[in-house]
Every structure is written in C-alpha cells, then in structure tokens.
Amino acid sequence: MARPKLKEHHINREWCKGCGICVEFCPKKVLELDRYDKAVIAVLEKCIACRLCELRCPDLAITIETQDQIP
C-alpha cells in the first residue's frame, strides 16, 4: 500500500504551548520552534505525513490532512 501523501499540515498557534515534543520526535526533522516558542514548519517537503507529531501533541494543536482522506 502506498503511503498517503501530505495535503496539509496545520499547526494551531492558539493551542500550541511550545513543548517541543513534535519537533523532537519528527523522524524527518520537519518542525522547529519559532522565537515565540510555537511549533512551525521548517521544511515541508520532507514531511512524510506519518502523523507522529499529530498523535503526540499534548495540546491537539496539529492536524495532518492527506490527499486520499475522505473529509
């Protein structure tokens, strides 16, 4: 089965508390914390839509949308 392709990677800045968990455990080092201590995307092209950041975020601040996803 082909891996689903990323459509969109949303980070809710209002909910993000800057814990850094998503940054630390992203297997492709896609994310970083900005100067306000909010998670942001550094290199979107590397994202493999594995959802690990979405599932480990304690603040439900990340939503991954994939291309095959039925809305």
Binding site: C19, I21, R56, P58, D59, L60
Partner: peptide, 23 residues
C-alpha cells in the same frame, strides 16, 4: 469528540495527560 470552547486546555506545556486525551 471535544468541547472545543475549553481549549487551549489547562495542562502545562508537555504534560503527558494531553497525549492520553489525544489518543
């Protein structure tokens, strides 16, 4: 499945309880 009006939640940054809620 959440009551969005109460977010962001009260837990500290990085609190594991949020990961339990998530999953």
């Amino acid at each position: 499945y959440i009551r969005e009006r109460f977010f962001p939640h009260i837990w500290c940054a990085g609190c594991g309880h949020g990961i339990v809620l998530n999953n």
